[in-house]
Design a protein around this nucleic acid. Structure first.
Length: 671
RNA sequence: GCCACUGUGGCUUAGCUGGUAGAGCAUCUGAUUCGUAAUCAGAAGGUCGGGAGUUCGAAUCUCCCCAGUGGCUCCA
């Protein structure tokens, strides 16, 4: 007999050899809703046999662990289906991921339209309710089982110690190399949906085979699946690329170029408001505003180390006219020019890929003393990077963007305090915008790598400063080794977009490298020259990416202070035009952004038209308002307030804007 | 950069196996003056992402290029 401890603390006695499934059914009844079990805290299949005293806890399909197992099992089912439909395909790996699962196959590319067939096959296999069986095999047997699949053999070679066996999971005739655990049978996998297909490289290595990756979703119930799909649909509606068009915030033009944002008037308002907002806080924190040009000589980037290295991620240099002429006279080919660029043997200018070198030159333009430090130079600096064409997306990944950049030149003793100041700034901004759903990543050096420059003792100190700063934020943060820049540790603020992709926004980086390369110094109190440390920081990351994320965050419904049109005035008839003009004028006098439609179109039509642009308020003017010098308001959700005296309205609205209230709130919700 | 898919007037979109494009919204004109999510009528607007080819004839087939979407790689 063995003693099994259940989650509620009770201890039951069973005959040795009992399975997890039997224990859980005994404890929770037949409808236990569990897919697998935890035995002494470790995950096992339901069929796992208990021989000793232990604790057992069921893993329900609606728990995090349960969903993970469900997804992983669905990946197996997918592989089984693909193998039946495409006998020549080779399965490689298929893990559960955040939003579902995928499986990579070595096979000829398939089209999205083929997913339906595969999905149907999966349903059929699920319905046939195969038992999912765990089989332990010796290394020899394993190799025999996967003799036709070099990918599995490679995994065996890499992951298993010589002589060690492992397990396979079988369902019907099909089996896969896997540690498990899995669902007990395939009928648990009825509610799946294949979402997309795309290539992936074997082991994420660009130089290796390209595989076909199929993504899918799985949920424990039909309702849960429907809900998930619905949520995804809703999320799509908030996509900044769609809303950017609907709300007329920005435009990307083929003829201008890929990844180059044209900020239209309405989008420019948002950007400008954000810029003003951050500038205000910068001044309070003692930053000095600077402006620098968009290009710099190649020599500048030779010193910084960006040229000729990293050329492939920059726009090509602007070559000097003399050189061009000379090369043309000599009959130089483009290939030869390209070679010269590679070796760096040309003169010319480069579109700046970052602002630091320019700011460094401002630092170096005077002799500095410790009394001047920290020197904080801020600029909304536009930079250009040659991102790979396939990476470019909306406003979140572009080729030209404006960083809310600043560089702090500090003494070593000032690092901790200044890093803290930087992330406080990030937090002020995020708080004001109600962006609470972000994570903080402290990038530390990889102790096993030698790519990092600088003295290890200084690194320790800087890393500690970053850690302490992150800890003081009061939000979740995680250290990640190997995530540091080669020149210093950093703190990143990462948010997710509507489709779950993560984007790095704000960043604070400590840099020992550039001060060295540019031979920056300051005079210390000891009369000696010392090397300053630089802190790079950009609380938004870039205006483009930040606005993109912000559009999705607010689903286009911006707070009054940010929204492009704060009031859209609508008249009931032509005779109200003069009053509309008067109201618009009064509002503009108070620096409130107003649009007016005084045409004779029906009010229903006007409302329908302008609500798409999500003004904070629609201001409706008719006979009553005109006579009493009042306004009637319509909120975004359709709620209304009638006959608000114009002066009161202006005062209230002005206050709402000045206080940067999170959402328009002058219209009380109606019952 | 890689693979699949997509690309029709400002927006959304019809156009089956090839015979030189239909519609709705928006725009403009006229009528209507009507209190909160589509008033009526008319007009104008596209050669079908760009180029080349096949064909008597291509938005529809082929090739190349450009751009977008999804994902991979990348993001110093």
């Amino acid at each position: 007999m063995i003693h099994v401890t259940l989650p509620d603390g009770t201890v039951n006695e069973y005959a040795a050899g009992i399975t997890c499934a039997e224990v859980i059914t005994d404890a929770m009844g037949k409808k236990h809703g569990c897919l697998a079990a935890k035995v002494n805290g470790a995950e096992y299949d339901m069929s796992y046999v208990l021989d000793e005293n232990c604790s057992v806890e069921g893993i329900r399909s609606d728990s995090d662990e349960g969903i993970h197992i469900l997804r992983h099992s669905a990946a197996h089912l997918l592989a089984q289906a693909v193998m039946e439909l495409y006998p020549g395909a080779l399965p490689t790996i298929g893990p559960a991921i955040d939003r579902g699962f995928y499986y990579d196959f070595a096979m000829d590319p398939i089209a999205e339209s083929d997913l339906k067939t595969i999905e149907k096959k999966m349903k059929e296999l699920a319905r046939r309710n195969f038992t999912v069986e765990r089989v332990e095999l010796s290394e020899e047997d394993l190799r025999e089982h996967f003799i036709d699949n070099p990918y599995k053999i490679e995994i065996i070679d890499d992951k298993l110690e010589d002589g060690d066996g492992s397990t396979i999971y079988k369902q019907g005739e099909w089996y896969d190399l896997c540690l498990g655990p899995h669902v007990p049978n395939t009928s648990r996998l009825m509610f799946t949906k294949l979402t997309s297909v795309s290539p992936a490289y074997w082991r994420g290595d660009q130089d290796r085979e390209q595989l076909v990756r199929i993504y899918g979703l799985v949920e424990p119930t039909k309702d849960a699946l429907r809900e998930t799909l619905h949520r995804m649909e809703e999320a799509k509606k908030r996509d900044h690329r769609k809303l950017g068009k609907d709300l007329q915030l920005f435009h990307i033009d083929e003829e201008v170029g890929q990844g180059l944002i044209l900020w239209t008037p309405r989008g420019a308002v948002i950007r400008q408001e954000l810029q003003d907002f951050i500038s205000y806080h910068l001044r309070r924190q003692g930053y000095k505003q600077v402006f620098t040009p968009h290009i710099g000589k190649l020599d500048l980037y030779r010193t910084s180390g960006h040229f000729p290295y990293y050329q492939e991620s920059q726009y090509p240099p602007l070559v000097e006219r003399d050189l061009m002429n000379k090369l043309a006279d000599e009959g130089c080919t483009c290939g030869e020019l390209s070679n010269l660029m590679k070796t760096g043997e040309i003169e010319g200018y480069m579109l700046k890929p970052m602002n630091c070198p320019h700011h460094i030159k401002i630092y170096a333009s005077q002799s500095r003393s410790y009394r001047n430090l920290p020197l904080r130079l801020a600029e909304f600096g536009t930079v250009y990077r040659w991102e790979q064409s396939g990476e470019i997306s909306g406003m979140t990944r572009v080729r030209g963007f404006t960083q809310d950049d600043a560089h702090l030149f500090v003494t070593e003793d000032q690092i901790a305090e200044e890093v803290l100041g930087c992330i406080e700034l990030v937090q002020i901004i995020f708080d004001k915008l109600g962006m609470t759903d972000y994570r903080v990543r402290v990038g530390l050096r990889d102790p096993d790598s030698d790519k990092y420059v600088g003295d290890p003792a200084r690194w320790d100190k800087a890393e500690e400063a970053c850690r302490a700063a992150a800890a003081s934020l009061g939000v979740p943060w995680a250290e990640e080794e190997g995530e540091a820049a080669f020149y210093g540790p950093k703190i990143d603020f990462v948010v997710k977009d509507v489709i779950g992709r993560e984007w790095q926004l704000g960043t604070v980086q400590v840099d020992y490298n550039l001060p060295e390369r540019f031979d920056l110094t300051y005079m210390g109190s000891d009369g000696e020259h010392h090397r300053p440390v630089m802190i790079h920081r950009a609380p938004f990351g870039s205006m483009e990416r930040f606005c993109g994320v912000l559009i999705e965050h607010f689903a286009g419904k911006f707070p009054t202070w940010l929204t492009p049109t704060q009031c859209h005035i609508i008249t009931l008839g032509e005779r109200h035009e003069a009053y509309a003009t008067k109201v618009a004028h009064a509002l503009r006098e108070h620096d409130i952004r107003v649009e007016v439609d005084a045409t004779d179109a029906h009010i229903k039509k006007k409302i329908k038209t302008y609500r798409k642009l999500q003004p904070a308020y629609m201001v409706i003017l008719g006979d009553g308002e005109m006579e009493a010098n009042t306004v009637s308001l319509r909120a975004r959700n359709g709620d209304q307030v009638a006959d608000l005296p114009l002066d009161d309205f202006i005062q209230l609205l002005r206050r709402e804007i000045d206080e940067k209230t999170s959402q328009p709130s002058l219209v009380a919700p109606t019952e």
